[in-house]
C-alpha cells in the first residue's frame, strides 16, 4: 500500500519538457534519494508532489486518494507533506521559534501556549533549543536549515520532501544537517530527498532513483544504483561525481 503515488506526471516550462510522464509509488517508511544531472527534473518532481508547481497532467495520489486541483484541497495536502528547501526560506522577520510556530498558529489555529510547547520540542529535536529567540540573520546556514526542518516537522507531516537541503551550505556545516535528517530516517519517517551527497544517499536511502529526460531512468537499492548501475547514463553521472573524490 503506497502512501504517495504519482502517475503520468508531466510538467513543461515554456519550451522545456521537464517531466515527461513520470510514475512513482512511495510506500510508508521508504526513504527515496533522487539523483540526476541539473535540469533532469528532480526539484520539479518534488515541487509537483505538494503542488508548489502545478503539474500539467498526470495524477498525484495521497493515501489512496487522488488530489484534486482546488486550492483548499491543495492547502490541506501541503500540510500533510513537509518540505525543506535548498535556500531554507525562513521568515527573516520572525525568530527561530516564531518560524516554527507560524504554521501552527496561522494555519492550524493552535493556542499560543500549545504552539510554543510544540515548537520548543521541535527545536530541541534539531538541537537548537538555545537558539529559539534568535533571528535567522544571526544563525549559521546549518542552523537555519535545522530551523527550517523543525518548521516542517511541527506540522506533523506524513512524509517529508528535502530539496537539496545541503547544497547551499558551507562544507563544514553539511554534517549537522545530514545528522538531523539521519535521525528522522532512523525514526522511520517517509521521505524523498533530492541530493548530491551520494554517500549519504547510500547509507540512508532505502531506494535510489536516477532521473534523466524527465522520467525515472534507473532505480533500485542504493547498492544497485550507486555501486552497480546498469545504465550508461547513470554510470556517467556517478563517474562525474566521483572524479575528484578522495578514496580512503
Amino acid at each position: 500500500m503506497s502512501i504517495l503515488g504519482v502517475s503520468g506526471l508531466t510538467k513543461r516550462f515554456g519550451q522545456a519538457d521537464v517531466l515527461r510522464g513520470l510514475d512513482l509509488e512511495v510506500a510508508p517508511g521508504e526513504r527515496i534519494a533522487i539523483l540526476g544531472a541539473s535540469g533532469s527534473g528532480k526539484s520539479t518532481l518534488l515541487r509537483c508532489l505538494n503542488f508548489m508547481e502545478m503539474p500539467d497532467s498526470g495524477t498525484v495520489t495521497l493515501d489512496g486518494k487522488i488530489v484534486g486541483r482546488r486550492e483548499s484541497e491543495l492547502i490541506q495536502v501541503r500540510q500533510r507533506i513537509g518540505m525543506v528547501f535548498q535556500q531554507f526560506n525562513l521568515f527573516p522577520h520572525m525568530t527561530a521559534i516564531g518560524n516554527v510556530m507560524e504554521g501552527l498558529r496561522t494555519v492550524r489555529r493552535f493556542p499560543k501556549a500549545e504552539a510554543q510547547a510544540r515548537a520548543e520540542k521541535e527545536l530541541a529535536r534539531v538541537g537548537l533549543a538555545d537558539k529559539a529567540a534568535s533571528y535567522p540573520a544571526h544563525l549559521s546556514g546549518g542552523q537555519k536549515q535545522r530551523v527550517a526542518i523543525a518548521r516542517a516537522l511541527a506540522m506533523e507531516p506524513e512524509l517529508m520532501l528535502f530539496d537539496e537541503p545541503t547544497s547551499a551550505l558551507d562544507p563544514e556545516l553539511v554534517g549537522e544537517v545530514l545528522g538531523v535528517i539521519r535521525t528522522l530516517a532512523d525514526e522511520g519517517r517517509t521521505m524523498l530527498l533530492v541530493t548530491h551527497e551520494l554517500g549519504f544517499a547510500y547509507h540512508v536511502a532505502t531506494r535510489v532513483i536516477f532521473l534523466a529526460d524527465g522520467v525515472i531512468h534507473e532505480e533500485g537499492t542504493p547498492d544497485q544504483v550507486l555501486v552497480h548501475p546498469t545504465k550508461e547514463r547513470t554510470r556517467a553521472f556517478l563517474a562525474s561525481h566521483k572524479e575528484y573524490s578522495l578514496q580512503g
Binding site: E71, R78, Q87, F91, E102, G103, V107
Partner: peptide, 24 residues
C-alpha cells in the same frame, strides 16, 4: 522563496500575504 516557505506549511494566499510577505 518566502512564498514557497509560507505555502509549504499550508498557508493560503491571504495568510501568506498578511503574515509573511506584507510585513517584510
Amino acid at each position: 522563496g518566502q512564498w514557497d516557505g509560507a505555502r509549504a506549511i499550508g498557508m493560503g494566499w491571504g495568510q501568506a500575504m498578511r503574515r509573511i510577505i506584507l510585513p517584510q
